[in-house]
Structure formats: C-alpha cells, structure tokens
Design a protein around this nucleic acid. Structure first.
Length: 724
DNA sequence: ATAAAGTGACTTTTT
DNA sequence: GTCACTTTAT
C-alpha cells in the first residue's frame, strides 16, 4: 500500500508538510492519529530521516503503543531506535541518563499520587502544622499545580499567611523526596525542563538527537511540557503538533489549551492545517456535538461534517433514579442486541464521576450480565499490588521511605508504631533516611542507634533488616520475577493474603497476575519494570476484547470510539458538575467534556437524565442538565421539546406516578425454593450445597458453597439451579 | 503490639 | 454510604 492511499487533501497536506513547525487542528474522528503515524512513516521513508532522530510524545501508553504499531504496519518493520512514549516515560529516561547533573542518583524511584499525598502529610506533621486546618490533600494540589507551572518552592507566590505555610510544606516535601532518592510525577517533567534550561550542553545533545519532534493531544500540555518541547526543538525548530482545543479536558491538571495560541505566537512561521472531515459519527451526532460546544466563548468554530449521512436520531431519556437508569441502559442494550443492531462490546456507558459507576454495576450484576470497567479501582492501586511493588522498589532503592513504611510491618512482624517513630526520629536527627538507620542497626554491631530499642523491637528490626539486605543484593542482578518470588516466599505473603475469604483469594490472584507481568521482563532490568508499572494510567487498562459493554468516565473516553454510547447523569450538578459552577473556565471545560463524550459515538447516542440523584448517600431531586436544552429538537427522537417549553414539574409528576403504578403491579411474591442443606448443581460452578436462602426485593438470594470451597451468592431466578 | 470500634471527610476529572 | 485514619480496649 502506498503511503498516501486514502488520505483526504488536508490529511495529505499535513503528512507531507515541509520541515519546520506544523500545527494540525484536528476535530474529533478526523483521523489525527492516522496523520501522525503517516507523518512519521513519511519522515522515515521519503525524507530519509533515521528513526533515531525522531521523538514522538503522547499522554498515554496506549496512544504510544497504537502509534508504534501503526508505524510498524506502515513501514513493514519496526522503527528501530525511535523515541516514542509518554511525556513522563521519555522524561524518566532522560533523567536517569543525566542523573549526574541532578540532586538524585540514577536509581531514583517514581512516587505516585498516593505516595505524594502521604509525603505531604509527613511534611505537614514534621513541621507541626495543624492537619485539620491544612489538609494534606489541598496542599498537595497547590504543590502539584505550582510544579506544573514550573514554580519551585522558593518562588512559590506568597500572598497570605496560608500561602506562607504551604510554601514551608512545599520546601519540606521536596527535601523529603530527595531524602528518599525519589521524584514525583510532576518532577519528571519539571526536572527535565530545568535540566535542559540550565545545561546548554545537555539541551544541545537532545535537541540534536531529536531532529523531528511530534506531539499528540497538544491541547493537554502544561507549562512544563511546553517549555520542554521548546528546549528540545531549540536547535532545529522541527516540531509537528496535533491537537483540538475543544477537547481540552485536563485544565485541573495544569493543561492549558492556550498553548495552541502560544505555539502560533512563538512560531509565527508555523503552518496551520485544519482537519474537519469526520470519519466516525453520523451527521446527527456531529450536529448535536457542535450545538453543545458552540456556546463556549473564545473558540474558533470547526464545522464538523461527514459523508455518513444523518443516521439515527438521538434518544433523550428521562428516568426516575439511578436504579431506573441502569435498568433502562441494560434493557436498551438487550433490545439492540436482540435486534442484531449491536454487539454488547460495541456499547459504552459514560459518566461524569466514578461514583456513578456503582449503581450501574449493580444493575449489571443484578441482571447477571458481564461488563468492563475502565479505571476506578485500578489494578495498580490495589493494596496487594502496591505492597509487592513497594518491596521491589525498596530493594532497588533502599532510600525509598514511602515503600519502607508501607512494607516494614506488612505482613505483621511486630514492628509497631513506637519502633517506627524511634527509627524516624533517629534518622531525622542525623539527616539520614530511615532505611539507613535500619541497615546500620542490622549490619553494625556497634551501631549507635541500637540502645534506643527494647530487645524485642531490636529482634524484629534485625530480622527484617537482614532480609532487606539479602534482597537488595539480589536486586542488582536477579530478574524482577526471581526477586519477587524470593520476597513472596520469604515473607509468606500468600498466607498473609489468604485469610479464608473470597477477597483473600482474589487478592492472591492479583499478585499472580502481577507475577505474570513481571515474567515478561525476564531479559530486562528491575528498573524498567518499576518504571513502567509506575507510569501506567487508567486509560491503559481499557481492554477492547471481551464482548461486554464498557463503563468509563467521560475523561477516560477520550481517544476511543464506540458504535453505541450512553451518557448518563445529564443533570445540573453532575454534568456540569457543581464544583465548576463558579468558574467560567471550568464551566467551559464541562462543555468540552460532554463534547468529547458525544463525539465518541459512531451510530447511536443515548442521553439520560434522572429526576433523582444520590448524593452523599441521600437521594435528592435533580434538575435536567442545561446542555440538553442546547441540542435542537429535530436531532432528538420524538422531537422532544427542549428549552423553556419543557415543563420539568409536570414531567416529574407523570414519571413518579408512572413509576408507582409500575411497581404496584402485583408481582407474584416468590416463594423460597431452596433452603440450607439442599444439594444443587449449577451449569458453570458445578455441584454445591446451599448455605442460606433469603428473599430480598422479591428475589430469592441463595448462598452456596461449591465444590472446592468457592462461595457464591446467586439469584435463584437467574442462576438456573437444579436440585439434586 | 494488635484488633476492634469510632470518627470524619469526602466525590470531579488522572499522567 | 464508604473509606481511611484515629482512638480505645485487650
């Protein structure tokens, strides 16, 4: 296949643009990834650029992988030597290589958000600041925002006393990070930008290597990332960026879509290319999307068009509450599938906040239907996974206090709070870190720290310290897998997890899953394993296989597409979220968020709003989202009235009475068919014994222990149980 | 030193 | 209603 096959004139223009600065403003579904990959292939094949001289940056590993795969296909071989990855991973690599210039060594660990919050808390405590007044969470946000804007602790703007306190915490926090030989997520970008800024020779080196720079999702860059790109392109100014300011949804993380304007100002000779033709959605969906985004101020309108035709109208559905919402979604999917109009795997259900997934999940569980969840309780956020990774991190870099604190008494090994406090104060007094004190106690008979402990405490510390020394020695040449196995055996992690509950078994299975991942790093170093596990994102957890509907936040939906999309919770307070009400910039972002969601849909779009919404455990009446009124009636199925004609109170009443009459319908009261002691068989789980059976909400819930000791709670009407 | 019981914040979105 | 963290009891 020739490189230019199937490209429209604008895409072709972008691909073949000369060297220099190019900005591609790409509407949703306009083939921007395609342009990016073909551009890379073009550089290599037509301009004879060595892959070694190309840098392509994305925001997620998934996007990076996708581009890499597609370039591979395009070229017929892997682009060897190309630098292609997320901002964070590219920066981590540079920092390790250039550690000599930096205040940490090349074995630094990367602190994730949990570690960061814990460290802020630590800093607050160290300084004897009231945690109630100065919430670590809030301070963490201020610090993170400052770093994204390239503001260091010394330059932190102080306007109030509170700012002054935050500045002190910031300073302390940064010192603690270095004490652990660690950097946080924000530091990866910040340190790299500072490094390039302050060391012309390093800047020249990388700028000369990366002769051609390509950036995906440019609207999501923050100040640090922008400066980074400026430095990296400083000797040649060959920079090709792709973005869409209407899809900028990470403002709260420091992203600034105005970087697009800055780019055009900083590079007045930049070529601008507009991609407006959409290859994904029906015209109806595009029209709805445009009607939602149009009211945003200060934007250049893009007229999205497609040759796919009008397609189906949009369905707007009012439901009574979250339960009703879930039932409607499931019912509708069932009907579409039965009619052969969609596969379950073609469906996405999107919401504003993660908490909304719960009621939807319950609906699926109740109906006994499978689903996929993106993000939420992510794999790498699980306790058992963090435990094991902390062990590995600690072995790799013993200075890592966050990891030490996590594992020093997990599983319980009689090292309690008092012992840990002593360890901490000793380390602070001598300006060391806690591991250094621990290892001193372990390996030096005349260690000055020994006297402070009881003999029982000393014994416990000694036992752990010795293990740590052995693992640390192993860490330099054993594979990640071997080290992990050694640790798991040495601390008997399995019996710690498996406490006889289903949850314990599940946790152990997760550890085994991590073990499988580690096994893939046989030929690679521990540091690579740790780095890649630290930098996976929720969005990377999306698994397109398995034929089941996907639930995800609107944020997580960016970059994906689905034939059928449900957007639930279209209510003022949820979408737009009430936290955004008082800031016009944030309100504009809420619109963009909905715009992103709508434009994920290829064929069918359902917008649901509920009359009642659960908040803080209590159900409250909710108002329809203002955005629904911006969608013209003719796009909506049934020509449903929108705007002021729409009488909310009347509708509320109708729906409530309808709902009541529905539930009043005499449903035959089921009689419990099973009782404790019955022997039964199940098509999947095999034979088992009933432990308990009770009626809940008109369903018979049976608790069964199957052969092999697996306990399950099943709904009798759905589980198809046979009495034996 | 640990397990149990109680308290209070929290819900926006995440590399 | 839930989680994480703190206090209290053993």
């Amino acid at each position: 296949m020739h490189l230019t096959d199937g490209l429209n004139p604008q895409q072709h223009q972008a691909m073949t643009a000369g060297i220099g600065q190019v900005i591609v403003l790409a509407g949703p579904g306009s083939g921007k990834t395609r342009v990016l990959t073909q551009r890379i292939a073009y550089l290599i094949n037509h301009l004879g650029v060595s892959p070694f001289n190309i840098l392509a940056v994305t925001f997620t590993n998934k996007a990076a992988r996708e581009i890499k795969d597609r370039v591979h296909t395009q070229l017929g071989q892997a682009p060897r030597g190309i630098s292609l990855g997320t901002f964070h991973s590219i920066c981590a690599r540079i920092l390790r290589r250039e550690a000599d210039y930096l205040p940490f060594d090349r074995n630094f660990v990367i602190f994730d958000q949990d570690d960061q919050k814990g460290l802020v808390k630590q800093a607050v405590r160290d300084l004897n600041i009231d945690e109630k007044m100065y919430r670590p969470n809030q301070i963490y946000n201020r610090i993170s925002n400052a770093k994204n804007d390239m503001v260091l602790a010394d330059d932190f703007p102080v306007n109030t006393y509170r700012d002054e306190v935050i500045q002190r915490v910031f300073t302390r926090y940064q010192a603690l990070l270095l004490n652990s030989n660690a950097v946080d997520f924000d530091d990866l970008l910040l340190w790299t930008a500072l490094l390039l800024n302050e060391h012309p020779e390093v800047r020249a080196k990388y700028s000369q290597q990366f002769q051609h720079i390509l950036v995906d999702e440019f609207q999501d860059t923050n100040q640090a990332q922008y400066e980074l790109l400026r430095h990296l392109s400083s000797t040649h100014n060959n920079i090709f960026v792709v973005g869409d300011s209407d899809q900028s949804i990470y403002r709260w993380r420091g992203a600034d879509y105005r970087n697009i304007l800055r780019f055009q100002r900083d590079y007045p000779t930049a070529q601008t290319i507009l991609l407006e033709q959409n290859y994904r959605s029906t015209q109806t969906i595009l029209d709805a999307a445009m009607s939602v985004i149009r009211p945003n101020p200060n934007r250049t309108h893009k007229e999205l068009f497609t040759d796919r035709g009008q397609g189906e109208k949009i369905i707007v559905k009012e439901v009574f509450d979250g339960r009703d919402e879930g039932r409607f979604v499931i019912d509708t999917i069932a009907k579409l599938v039965a009619a052969g109009k969609a596969d379950p795997g073609h469906v996405a259900i999107m919401y504003r906040i993660n908490a909304q997934s719960r009621e939807l999940e319950e609906a699926f569980l109740h109906a006994n239907l499978p689903y996929k969840l993106v993000g939420a309780q992510r794999f790498y956020g699980r306790r058992e996974i963090k435990d094991i990774l902390s062990y590995l991190r600690l072995c790799h870099n013993t200075h890592d206090e966050a990891s030490l604190l996590r594992v020093i008494n997990t599983p319980r090994r009689k090292i309690g709070r008092k012992t840990i406090d002593t360890l901490r104060s000793q380390s602070r007094a001598d300006d060391l870190n806690m591991s250094a004190v621990l290892l001193s106690i372990t390996s030096q008979e005349d260690s000055p720290y020994i006297a402070a402990y009881s003999s029982a405490a000393l014994k416990a510390l000694y036992a752990f310290g010795e293990k740590l020394l052995r693992w640390h020695a192993l860490a330099s040449d054993a594979s990640p897998l071997d080290l992990m196995d050694r640790i798991i055996v040495d601390v008997d992690y399995q019996s710690y997890l498996e406490d006889g509950t289903d949850e314990g078994i599940e946790r152990w299975e997760n550890v085994m899953e991590l073990r499988r991942l580690a096994a893939e790093y046989k030929e690679r170093r521990l540091v690579d394993f740790l780095e890649e596990t630290a930098l996976v994102s929720d969005q990377d957890t999306y698994n397109p296989s398995a034929n089941a509907p996907t639930m995800l936040t609107l944020h997580a939906s960016k970059g994906l597409e689905f034939p059928v999309v449900f957007i639930v919770g279209m209510e003022d307070g949820t979408l737009p979220h009430s936290r955004s009400f008082d800031d016009p910039e944030e309100m504009a972002e809420e619109r963009r968020l909905l715009y992103v969601g709508i434009t994920r849909a290829k064929d069918r779009l359902y917008l649901l709003h509920s009359l009642n919404r659960r908040r803080f455990g209590y159900t409250e009446p909710a108002d329809i989202s203002r955005y629904l009124n911006d969608i013209p009636h003719e796009l909506i199925d049934g020509g449903r009235p929108s705007g002021i004609e729409y009488s909310l109170k009347k509708r509320k009443f109708e729906i409530q009475t309808r709902w009541k009459s529905e539930i009043k319908q005499p449903k035959p009261e089921p009689i419990a068919q099973f009782q404790a002691g019955d022997s039964i068989s199940h098509s999947i789980f095999g034979e088992g014994e009933v432990l308990d059976s009770k009626l809940e909400d008109g369903d018979e819930i049976v608790e069964i222990i199957f052969e092999g000791g697996i306990k399950k709670r099943l709904i009798a009407a759905l589980a198809n149980l046979k009495k034996l």
